[in-house]
Write a protein that binds this DNA or RNA. Structure first.
Length: 726
RNA sequence: GCGCUCUUAGCUCAGUUGGUUAGAGCGUCCGCCUCACACGCGGAAGGUCAGGGGUUCGAAUCCCUUAGAGCGCACCA
């Protein structure tokens, strides 16, 4: 028995040493596994893509959980003998990264992005991203993640840039990407558009004003947008207003004088709200915009990009809307147009990143059309035939409904389908500078799609960049080299498994299905297991303001990676939020040491030649059979992604069966005079330890590997590539 | 408003298609440094499985309902 077993288990020394050894061996790479003969060349393929962390980020407890979950799955499949690939990468996170660098520059140099100019800013942001890349990558390694680093990808590297341009071009050519004046979510604070999914609604107490509008009374919470209102809308079935007909014109006195208004009948009006009549402001309201589109009405801007009133507001022009509101109401009161005021609670849209209040605006932006039909020439997606004509919405739906993408968690599946029902066109252009620039060039009336301007003529590139999720949506295949027809792409796509947090189900999962479906005619992954968030013991999210953050590296330093992984995985069904409990992590540190001591006992009581199982006495054979039952059970759990149960069962077996019972019973046998019983027991102990280590390895890779390296049953260079028991 | 998830021991959570006395970790109490392990060992206390109703031979598990917590989507002018 090696001397190391005489001391308690030392996680920190072991973990860094072993990770280096694994990485140097090259066996995280499935091709190397085949070359070295530890994996069969025609074995089934199993692929996982790491949800890329922000390149400038640091590892937080949520990553730690996600990495633990995926690494357990990946290691299981590798040991099962699959050609297993787990692809690493990082994300440029355009808005977040640019905002951070801008803030630094402002602080250190007192300069804004406009002072620096586009080229310089992008250079600085890119440099910052590059400089901080190493931090997150080394932290992911600390988690023990068995990623094939030779395939590392970054969303802004050359291959991924090519993928983005190609994807844009193909969608444009298919008529699925268009540029148009459409109403978008404008963030006056961030000075950019954002997508519907980047909005957070916040409750606000406001006043609902009932205003006299000619013969009608209208209710509004936003009198400051009413200057241009010249359409008054009601439900066609509303009997209170049956005297009025669609298109009828009426003269009335309004904020800044007499106007002519037109009556519009539209079924989208809620007859029970307010008075059942409203005026519309198509430029600054999604709903109003839709009504205006249906009836082909005029649209006029009232508010500018900085949230100030335009000249149409007359004397109020130039005022911020917040200060103008009360003044306008005052004027309306003076004119006797305010009928009544009542307290009112509603939700206002704010930008997730900046907290700015969203002001819908009609802007010229690029969109992905989710309802326009196209022909999918070649489809490997169950439920969608090659040559089928369908919309992206239908594609996203069919891919899940027909089981091409298996979403075993019914709740998330419903949420996904519900989201698709309500989906609008996806606004993909952003008015920032860092990220994938829209690959479109203009020269007068001419448009060219591509990374470079065409030769000859004066071409200018679109100034906007793409929504960061546009490139992320390509991730499962851009990481494998697409649009080039690489061997990797042919071999490893569609991927097998994806496990993102439910926060990004809509932002990311659905868009991967969209892009993969359209561009490859494949699903991006066969099974998606949505996981929950890690919260503190009170169930709160971790946040800077609560100061309740947990640094995974700190936990690793104190208890070891194996313990942290177990503490996060055991006992929380995938999809539920994980309540982080340091005590639990500590408990699994103790477990790692327990295992260490089991190994010490077994190794110091067996000799290297005590391995043949044929000599087992009946009692020992029975214990081995009992273990086989556990093996079957745990394997089934692993196959069904119930890692939390598998890990708990192994823990329970090793501590309360193997250590508490079997080892205790073994002491008299090993000290006894019955040679046959003793040899049999030695063989049994060695076998049970060996197989326990194999099955525990996906969860606690380090301590199991370290012990296994000293076992006489060792039959592979690493436990990492040894065979899963059956 | 529409939809989803959750409510099990003091705390945090498991309980896989309904099946014997409902489990784990931490915590608590008692006794132990017994040569694998004090990062440990032995033992103990602690639950009307949110409330009510139903289906069933049998329910923490399925159905209905009430209450509470959380989340998603939509959104009211």
């Amino acid at each position: 028995m090696p001397d190391k077993f005489l001391k308690p288990y030392d996680a920190s020394e072991t973990e860094t040493r072993l990770y280096d050894a694994w990485e140097k061996s090259g066996l995280f790479n499935p091709d190397e596994c085949v070359a070295r003969g530890v994996t069969s060349a025609n074995a089934p393929v199993y692929t996982v893509t790491l949800p890329p962390p922000n390149v400038t980020g640091v590892l937080h407890i949520g990553h730690a959980y996600e990495d633990s979950l995926q690494d357990a799955v990946v290691r299981y499949h590798r040991m099962k003998g699959d050609r297993t690939l787990w692809v690493p990468g990082t994300d440029s996170a355009a808005i977040a990264t640019q905002a951070r660098v801008e803030k630094n520059i402002q602080k250190e140099e007192g300069k804004s992005r406009h002072d620096l100019g586009r080229e310089e800013l992008v250079k600085r942001v890119a440099a910052f991203a590059k400089a901080s890349e190493g931090t997150i990558l080394s932290q992911v390694r600390r988690m023990g993640a068995s990623l094939d680093w030779s395939r590392y990808a970054y969303t802004l590297d050359d291959t991924r840039n090519r993928a983005v341009t190609e994807a844009f071009k193909r969608m444009y050519d298919a008529g699925l990407i268009y540029r148009g004046h459409r109403i978008v979510n404008w963030d006056p604070k961030g000075q950019t558009t954002i997508s519907d999914d980047e909005i957070v609604y916040q409750e606000e107490k406001a006043v609902l004003y009932y205003l006299q509008y000619g013969p009608f009374t209208i209710a509004t919470a936003r009198p400051e947008t009413k200057f241009g209102d010249k359409y008054v809308v009601m439900h066609p079935d509303d009997t209170r207003y049956s005297a009025w007909s669609d298109g009828q014109q009426i003269e009335l006195e309004w904020i800044n004088g007499p106007i002519t208004a037109t009556v519009i009948k539209d079924a989208s009006i809620d007859m029970t709200f307010g008075t059942g009549v409203m005026t519309i402001t198509p430029w600054h309201s999604m709903v109003d915009f839709d009504i205006a589109e249906r009836h082909e009405l005029d649209k006029e801007p009232i508010i500018d990009e900085f949230g100030k009133l335009l000249p149409i507001a007359g004397e109020f022009a130039g005022m911020k809307i917040s200060e103008a509101r009360e003044k306008i109401v005052e004027k309306l009161r003076g004119k006797g147009l305010v009928v009544k005021e009542e307290a009112y609670t509603h939700n206002i849209a704010t930008a997730e990143r900046t907290g700015g209040v969203i002001e819908p605006q009609i802007k010229l932006q690029w969109f992905v059309d989710v309802t326009r039909p196209f022909t999918l020439v070649r489809s490997d997606i169950p439920g969608i035939a090659s040559g089928a004509t369908l919309s992206l919405k239908e594609l996203m739906r069919a891919a899940v409904v027909a089981g091409g993408v298996n979403m075993p968690q019914e709740g998330f599946r419903n949420a996904y389908l519900h989201w698709i029902e309500n989906l609008r066109d996806w606004c993909i252009s952003r008015q920032i500078w860092f990220g994938h620039r829209v690959p479109v060039w203009y020269s007068g009336e001419n448009i060219h799609i591509g990374a470079q301007a065409p030769a000859g003529g004066e071409w200018t590139q679109d100034p906007d960049v793409l929504d960061t999720w546009f490139s992320s949506a390509l991730w499962t295949f851009s990481t494998l080299g697409w649009p080039r027809e690489t061997d990797d792409l042919a071999t490893f796509h569609p991927t097998s498994f994806m496990s993102p947090a439910y926060e990004i189900l809509n932002l990311w999962v659905s868009r991967m299905i969209l892009m993969s479906g359209f561009l490859l005619g494949q699903v991006p992954f066969q099974t998606v297991m949505i996981h929950g968030l890690v919260r503190d013991k009170q169930g709160r999210k971790f946040s800077k303001s609560l100061n309740n953050g947990i640094d995974p590296l700190d936990m690793i330093g104190r208890y070891g990676t194996d313990a942290l992984r177990m503490g996060l995985l055991v006992g929380t069904a995938v999809g539920n939020d994980v309540s982080f409990d340091e005590g639990k992590v500590k408990g699994y540190k103790h477990f790692a040491n327990k295992l260490w001591n089991v190994a010490r006992f077994v190794l110091s009581n067996t000799s290297a030649d005590a391995t043949p199982q044929s000599a087992l006495v009946p009692a020992d054979h029975e214990l081995l059979t009992a273990f086989d039952t556990l093996t079957t059970d745990v394997t089934l759990d692993m196959e069904n992604y119930r890692m939390y149960l598998a890990a708990e069962k192994l823990y329970h077996y090793i501590w309360h069966e193997l250590a508490d019972k079997i080892i205790e019973e073994s002491k008299p046998i090993l000290a006894g005079t019955d040679e046959g019983a003793r040899t049999s027991r030695q063989a049994l102990l060695l076998t049970l330890l060996d197989r326990s280590l194999r099955m525990l390895h996906p969860f606690m890779p380090f301590v199991t590997e370290e012990i296994w390296q000293s076992l006489p049953t060792k039959d592979a260079p690493f436990l990492m590539v040894a065979r899963w028991p059956s």
